[in-house]
């Protein structure tokens, strides 16, 4: 079968991108290779690890399990979209302060899941935070510092 190309307009972090994509390209690959936003990390490509988590209309989804063409008409938010022009967001600052990352591979997915939770529920309990993060694997931290960081970022919004 010929690998056809279709034209799509994707709204990523508030900006429209007119792209030619193959329908078989996952959203994670389109974000990284066509849009040029490499903050979205690709881990397992089977929906298990959560590294590629992005927000689709504000809700966390696996970008390796959606095709790029499917994101047309939706708002996509990547880790670049929750990062201020300069410096770090309150959540990112808390990750730094609490040593919530070591290798950093899972961090973009962790940040987006945690930010979506805080957007929805500014003061979640520790249990709620742990439940929300069950879909994101981290092989470095043992999770405690990530939970600590999200707890510390409660009630602070997304920042500037």
């Amino acid at each position: 079968m010929a690998d056809e190309r279709v034209e799509v307009v994707l709204r990523v972090n508030g900006r429209d991108h007119r792209l030619e994509v193959s329908p078989r390209w996952t959203l994670s690959d389109v974000l990284r290779h066509q849009v040029g936003l490499t903050g979205t990390h690709v881990g397992c490509e089977q929906g298990v690890c959560g590294a590629c988590t992005v927000l689709l209309d504000g809700e966390p989804v696996r970008s390796c399990l959606i095709f790029g063409v499917q994101a047309e008409g939706h708002n996509v938010t990547t880790v670049e979209g929750i990062t201020p022009e300069s410096g770090l967001s309150p959540l990112q600052e808390a990750f730094r302060k609490h040593h919530a990352l070591q290798c950093g591979y899972c961090t973009p997915g962790m940040l987006l899941t945690a930010q979506a939770l805080l957007d929805r529920e500014p003061n979640p309990s520790e249990e709620t935070i742990r439940e929300a993060l069950t879909g994101n694997l981290c092989r470095c931290t043992g999770y405690q510092f990530i939970v600590d960081a999200v707890m510390a970022a409660r009630g602070q919004g997304r920042g500037a």
């Binding site: 690998d3 329908p23 078989r24 996952t26 490509e45 089977q46 063409v69």
Partner: peptide, 10 residues
Amino acid sequence: MKPAAFQYFR
């Protein structure tokens, strides 16, 4: 780990 090509209809 990439899907084979397909025709896409919405």
